[in-house]
């Protein structure tokens, strides 16, 4: 099990950041991701695997309409 933005999510082997983004239907392009407080470069979302028990923050960067 992992935590994504404070909510539990089932963990799967070889799960990547992109898999989580797709599962959550986060279509906004300005996403920033931290795994256990370590930032993940945007270009690495497809290849960065998420370990079990990780605390993942997927932040939508927009702060103004």
């Amino acid at each position: 099990m992992i935590t994504v933005n404070g909510e539990p999510m089932e963990w799967k082997r070889e799960m990547t950041v992109r898999d989580i983004i797709d599962a959550k239907r986060y279509v906004f392009p300005l996403l920033a991701v931290w795994i256990d407080s370590v930032p993940v470069p945007r270009d690495d979302f497809d290849i960065t695997e998420v370990p079990d028990n990780a605390n993942v923050q997927i932040i939508h960067m927009i702060s103004g309409g």
């Binding site: 991701v33 931290w34 470069p41 945007r42 932040i59 960067m61 927009i62 702060s63 103004g64």
Partner: peptide, 20 residues
């Protein structure tokens, strides 16, 4: 904030990064 530096998210904490 409709454009952000490439390293915005890797340079700052989540709370700070939102302020660009």
């Amino acid at each position: 904030n409709d454009i952000e530096p490439e390293d915005n998210a890797t340079k700052h904490s989540p709370q700070e990064a939102a302020r660009v």
